[in-house]
Amino acid sequence: MRRILYLLPLIILAGLVVAFALRLGDPDKETLPSQLIDRKVPQFALDPLPGRGRALSSGDLKGQVSLLNIFGSWCRSCVAEHPMLKRIQREYDIPLHGIDWKDDPEAGKAWLARHGDPYDRIGLDPDSRVAIDLGVTGAPETFIVGPDGRIRYKHTGPITPKVWKDTMLPLIRKLRRTS
């Protein structure tokens, strides 16, 4: 018994070292899991990009599986993600909506003009009202919304081909089957 007491520091150290090692090896350590999984998309109705039309409201995220992408012209990772979004729009038949977050509308328009516009509907969220309602921490983030208007998945950071193929696409297909 006393012996174990003297071993205690070593045991605690071992536990901590394992915890640190697991944490160092975790690529997702900065990602905050969404609180809204399986909950309904919060009610909102956002203004469109000026001149573009096709505004976005929560009602548009119903009836079929859809993607909701948070972006902004100020967001560097969004540029990196953009080709993937264009590919999704081109190759898969799934509505992709965007929220232009904390952006100057003109800057957002110019950014889309330069990099291409894969979005169906776009809403402007200049003061993070909807972003906070969605529990967004940064851009890009992408939600998968089911036909029932419930959020089923959130991806933080640029969608990589791997995430798309291994996680998002199978989920979308499953949601389509079950509805």
Binding site: E30, T31, C75, R76, S77, C78, E81, T137, G138, A139, P140, E141, T156, G157, P158
Partner: peptide, 9 residues
């Protein structure tokens, strides 16, 4: 995004 966000932040 995380890395960039971290930098931006």
């Amino acid at each position: 995004m995380r890395l960039t966000a971290a930098l931006v932040v």
